[in-house]
Amino acid sequence: MEKVIDIQHLSKSYGAHEVLKDINFSVEKGEVVSIIGSSGSGKSTLLRCVNLLERPTGGAIIYNGENILDDKHDLNQYRTKLGMVFQHFNLFNNLNVLGNCTVGQVQVLKRSKLEAESIARKYLSVVGMEQYINAKPKHLSGGQKQRVAIARALSMEPDVMLFDEPTSALDPEMVGEVLKVMKELANTGLTMLIVTHEMEFAREVSDRVVFMDKGVIAEAGSPEQIFSNPNEERTREFLKRTLKQG
């Protein structure tokens, strides 16, 4: 299989505080990888390091055979290849739904307005938001905002989609609609890297699950293996804690 992103010996520290230690893992084309772990385990930081919203302090991120942490690399060009979905949606407040999905295409990818709009409409219908193209973010519910945010990222036609706890800021009744969209996307063969607290969902859609603890990857494997038969004691502890709450 072809590796889309290969992370080697990645580390990140804030001053003396080491948040990520020697992280090694890769995402293959068409693969859905979920990162689970307790709060503060470094999973969101890892995701944010992948698209360089946080600058790693060490290691390499190999994309298309090149280390994008090399100084000369065009980071903005690289970021267009990664679609990011945030916990708090971060839709552009000054633009309507269609504008949110076209601004990046027109400004960064230099697509024509017409082409951008037709691509945006396509992905808005994938997430079931095509009727809302005139609405401003302030008009939408949390679940609707997150679906638009997914369409915005998809409209850039990235190689990988990154999801940073996409349902954590949602009211419980809206979690379902977002997870449903994500499941559909996973089934189309999209490459996805998901940080999540939704264990059921991770188990169902993932090809691989990565469990992080205290800034290191404690265990990685198939969902079956991680959830039913974890090798590590700390994975077992974590699952026992979270599944009891859920």
Partner: peptide
């Protein structure tokens, strides 16, 4: 909101 800057950066804007 800081998230507006982050979303713009994440989409590849300078």
């Amino acid at each position: 909101d800081k998230g507006q800057f982050e979303a713009a950066r994440a989409i590849g804007m300078n």
